[in-house]
Write a protein that binds this DNA or RNA. Structure first.
Lengths: 247, 247
DNA sequence: CTTGAAACTGACGTTACGTCATTTTGTATA
DNA sequence: TATACAAAATGACGTAACGTCAGTTTCAAG
């Protein structure tokens, strides 16, 4: 049983905001003193955490209200989505980082490559917005989570799955560039590290990979994660290079 | 010379927003057609990028206006701050990530450690706000940048300096854990990669490292970057392990 | 039983745009 | 050169999510 100021302190949400949320029926304290002071409990905090996250990815308060009120809301599910969002954000940030470095590096010389980099930073910042939109949509449409469940030998209950999806997603973005370039090779390295954790030997990993491809090619109804053919091919090429460098 | 729609496309800022910025005098297009259509050039884009970043860390539009108008505004300086901010955000996100993983992991069992984790996530999200405040302040107070200039043989003109600071900052967080653990070793690996880029041989790197320690111990007035003694010792230990594994 | 900090309830203010409605401008085509 | 039609412009009003008073009531500590 926490009074409003304590909750504000703990969460960084202002007192006024908490009262506002009460007013609009988004988050009513589970109990009150006789005099009408709000008293929050642990469940209220859970709800507040949800609200914070959903706000962060761009939902409006009334949208959040509707979602939290809908009976089949799944807190565990939401957490997984948060995790997956955080990972994407990290990707986005590291891109921004390298572009900023380019910019800083080439700052002295006022040339054209500079102008391109500026646009890149802004587009990347924009990426964030698209990311948020994607996640907002995925909150409603269950499709994405269902897809994840289709990755063979990796249910979405294993948090690693999310990372795999993220890594594959990253690869996709470089598909028109050299599979030997450092960006791609770094991704592959991370994949290989994950592979070592998750599976056993190298052959097994490649087998799984091909399994996926075959199934996707043969039929979507086998219920596997649909990785595009070209992505798989690209991934394979990059992996070959990686092995070559390593061995 | 870009018309408003093109700029909007390139940057993800809506047309309405651009007009709004013009209206309040925050960003006026450098030229116009005879009929009054706004035409933006490269300098305008630079300015817009600044605005985007400053908005992201929580400035109000009129504050931004004042800062950009103040004659001694330094675009290069601002970029460095952006980079440093991005790195801090990454740290913050990776903390959030691991806490989310904790939460997801312990979701089945409805116990107390769970409640603590929830509070942790929220406090971490709150970190962001504090981060933003810190950076807003550092925009005015030059202190931070001055500190960076004190790292020997690395002026803040070398963008790598920022990464060093960030890496050292990361190390600090693990100082009570095993210097051989993978998190720490990954940081060290990145340091070693940076070292190879920046300096030459291994010995030289270690020499520099000791230089720093000696000077810090002897006197702060030599104007060096203050790395805590214990961090240095920890870093050294971790590095030794790294070398051991590598060689 | 008092008393000062903290909570409460309106009510109006503010920021940063979104959303019409209506009018002009620029340019590709007949 | 005329015309049409997308895209730009300018108000004006709307809105979401609180911030900021102002005046009142409740609570816990002495």
């Amino acid at each position: 049983m926490l009074h409003i100021h304590k909750v504000s302190e703990m969460t960084g949400v202002t007192v006024r905001t908490l009262r506002h949320y009460d007013h609009i029926g988004l988050l009513q304290s589970s109990s009150k003193t006789e005099g009408g002071h709000r008293l929050y409990n642990h469940t209220d905090l859970k709800k507040l955490q949800q609200i914070q996250f959903m706000k962060k990815i761009g939902f409006r308060l009334n949208e959040i209200k509707n979602m939290l009120n809908s009976s089949d809301w799944d807190w565990s599910d939401s957490l997984k989505k948060q995790l997956s969002y955080v990972k994407k954000e990290q990707e986005s940030l590291s891109k921004i980082e390298s572009t900023l470095r380019e910019l800083i590096h080439g700052m002295a010389m006022e040339d054209e490559s500079n102008e391109i980099a500026i646009q890149k930073v802004m587009q990347l910042a924009n990426n964030d917005k698209e990311l948020q939109e994607r996640y907002r949509k995925s909150m409603f449409e269950e499709r994405e989570l269902k897809l994840w469940k289709k990755v063979p030998n990796m249910t979405s209950d294993q948090p690693d799955t999310l990372e795999w999806i993220a890594l594959i997603g990253q690869l996709k973005r470089f598909i028109h560039e050299d599979p030997g370039c450092s960006n791609v090779q770094n991704i592959i390295r991370r994949m290989d590290e994950k592979r070592a954790e998750t599976f056993g030997g190298e052959t097994e990993f490649l087998d799984k990979l091909w399994d996926v491809r075959m199934s996707e090619k043969q039929s979507e109804q086998l219920g596997l994660y649909p990785i595009d053919q070209d992505v798989l091919e690209y991934m394979n090429a990059a992996y070959e290079i990686f092995i070559g460098k390593k061995g």
